[in-house]
Design a binder for these strands. Sequence first.
DNA 1: TCTTCGTTCTGGTAAGACCAGTACGATGAC
DNA 2: GTCATCGTACTGGTCTTACCAGAACGAAGA
Lengths: 249, 249
Amino acid sequence: METQDADSASGFERVFVYLRERLLDGTLKQGERLMAERELALQLGVSRPIVREALRALHMLGIIEIRERVGTIVKRPDASMLKDFFTLALAQQADLIDDVMEARIAIECQAVRLACERATIADFERLQRALVRIGETIDDADAGGSADFDFHRAIVLASRSPTLAVLHESMSTLLARSHRSRRELVQQFSSMKSYLIDDHKRVFDTIVSRDADRAEVTLRRHFAIGDEYRRRAVTGEGDRVEARSAQGT
Amino acid sequence: METQDADSASGFERVFVYLRERLLDGTLKQGERLMAERELALQLGVSRPIVREALRALHMLGIIEIRERVGTIVKRPDASMLKDFFTLALAQQADLIDDVMEARIAIECQAVRLACERATIADFERLQRALVRIGETIDDADAGGSADFDFHRAIVLASRSPTLAVLHESMSTLLARSHRSRRELVQQFSSMKSYLIDDHKRVFDTIVSRDADRAEVTLRRHFAIGDEYRRRAVTGEGDRVEARSAQGT
DNA sequence: TCTTCGTTCTGGTAAGACCAGTACGATGAC
DNA sequence: GTCATCGTACTGGTCTTACCAGAACGAAGA
């Protein structure tokens, strides 16, 4: 007697839309518990499995949290599902990685600008720590890649932007892998060690100086140089070219 | 006799992980159909509703497509669920909108750079069309906001980056609303008309000139000016200030 | 007042069934 | 032999009923 008007749409759609509307119009607020599955099913005139499908869908969206034997509550939105998405999407479309890297550059370049405005002492310290670790792990591809990644993440965190952070984090799986493989080039190009250390230091300095424009330029150049190394590795130019470029820089 | 071996994880988790692995290791490729729900349930030793939950979850991730009475197929990854996410996330955290706007700026600034490298004639034409529409709809908040949005979307499309496009698109709901509300300021600030027309034109010109650095600077300034108008509107400065600023610019 | 216990509620899952279209092979007409 | 038609098997969509185990919470007892 309550839901037969909501025809046309499938059961799942009905439940999903119903819940979405409740979330959008503020009827369901963060931290609140929503109806029990059974009650929801009864009220919407669908079966419980259908309700569960809709809840699972919202759960994947990072909007609700399903606590076993407790209930379903609205949680702080969390885009961690993007991680799964990027990972799976990449598996289907391997060529996507360069594309994602471009998006990552977008995120970080904006982040470094905001970081110049908003970074706190704690952010500086985190950046500093990452910087030190980059120096310490310069000869270790694994730890080095991890340190490199931490530095870049520290930049994003320093931007104090949850959205940028979550987007960056979503790409982390890919980024981490990329950082690591780039680190393996260190064996090939001896000048890379100083590049890795000095260039990150430069980026750090510009953030400390709070000059957004220069920070972005520096970071872009940092990416460009890294790309250049990778390009050279692909085209087969090795140590020989290395010597020249080392003094050229 | 079927499930006790698959320990620890819940039924849903088992199915989800199973499918994810298949997708990651290439066993399931794009366009392929996966097992029927019943068969999947039988093989994994879970009930069909559980299988359906997992399929629904993957569907939300934009990885698979469920065709009624036909089957479930692996499709080209599609991040359109981000739209739902941002919309719902914003409803829960209204303060997130400025944050999302910053992410949007990140996307567009990178996009405009790439557009300078990659834009085709078709992209220029699309930008041009949007530009014309901005001029035509300058007095209409609705159509004007839409035209404005189209222009910015055209920039992202010109970047030829699927990832940037999908991220931008995900924020479209919020952006569209924001563009519209900004357009209402036109009534308040007469100088906004020329700003809207000239500034977009300037951005367009820099893209045509394929000067990435200048394009980004121009676009950033474009955003900054828009922000400035909004700031003034919030602080209550209206037409009075307007006259001065008009000649000041 | 604090502890303990048990009822109740909750999510997790299973199993079986029916519906309505789709896909496709078999059958029949031409 | 070719083509149109027709069944039938299969598929997803959904409902129903039922049981489990742990959490929550109030009542009863120490």
